[in-house]
Design a protein around this nucleic acid. Structure first.
Lengths: 173, 173
DNA sequence: GTCTATAATTTGATAGAC
DNA sequence: GTCTATCAAATTATAGAC
């Protein structure tokens, strides 16, 4: 993957956090990167492929992080809770896949498939770490919904209120 | 509110469940209703006003439902859980305000304000019914996130798995 | 209140030069 | 790989007839 392609994914991901699949355009992404929209098409022929690639990379990165922290002995309940807490507190504030997931009824199939893959991966790794399926699903729902309500209220403490009962390690937050 | 205006809100709400604010157009709404897009503008001058009106009506209706069920003795934990379970199982499958909330970083201010009002109302009514603020926030997050993950996985049982621990009345589901 | 017509802009995508 | 140029379609919105 070329450095320009990475920059395109960066820009598209940033834009998608705000408005999902319909919330960004080739021209906006191109302007962010400093190239022309036709050059974006050279790297990603269609918008569907671009959005799918954003989700795929995002899932891979989160998956690696989960594996790393679980291997390091972090409690499974804290891994995802902490990862998305970082998102809520960052300038981006939202997980782009959550935005796509909320609007998934209107997504092109290839993007919808990547979104499904993302949430299945989260559930699979939690179950692999010892949670029951119902527990994993509830955990993922709390985190996802906590992010949505937190963004909607424009108040990051909402995420902490939603997740306060999840923390197992009682680390300083 | 005229009957045509109600039909416009119906169509816009239906479209918004799929793609949020950027997921519908005046032409699509007009076609659904059977009028021309310029006639939609007569009832709602801008897209921002139309989307805000959709959220406002949706919040009012849900607020009335919550009040009615609480007055009828339904357990506060079950009221919202059951209401959105109906949404997940319906043809629409998603709450339009949840879609907007997920993409709220990119919303016009008037729409964002109505989305905030919606989630504040939900929290306020739960706290008014006796829940602690942390409990109300967690409950709302589970329901909201359960809907998002359920829609993303295209599997309504995910919502039931996410909310199984919430049910207080143990009614048949 | 609804229509036709249209303005002004943006969209995703392609062709072809360099 | 990036550019200019362009396309066909869609977008929000307005003016004015009926």
């Amino acid at each position: 993957m070329s450095s320009i392609a990475e920059s395109i994914l960066d820009a598209a991901e940033r834009r998608m956090r705000g408005g999902g699949f319909n919330g960004f355009s080739f021209r906006e992404v191109a302007d962010d990167v400093g190239i022309k929209s036709s050059s974006v098409h050279y790297h990603f022929p269609t918008k569907e492929k671009l959005a799918a690639a954003v989700v795929h990379r995002y899932a891979d990165r989160l998956g690696e992080r989960i594996d790393r922290e679980l291997a390091g002995g972090v409690d499974p309940y804290d891994v995802l809770t902490n990862a998305f807490r970082g998102t809520v507190l960052s300038a981006n504030r939202m997980c782009p896949v959550t935005v796509l997931g909320a609007g998934s009824l209107g997504l092109p199939e290839e993007v919808a498939a990547e979104v499904r893959r993302f949430f299945r991966m989260c559930l699979g790794k939690l179950v692999g770490a010892g949670l029951l399926p119902d527990e994993a699903t509830e955990l993922l729902a709390i985190i996802t919904g906590g992010m949505v309500v937190s963004a909607a209220l424009n108040d990051s403490t909402t995420y902490d209120r939603a997740t306060v009962k999840l923390w197992r390690s009682h680390r300083a937050i």
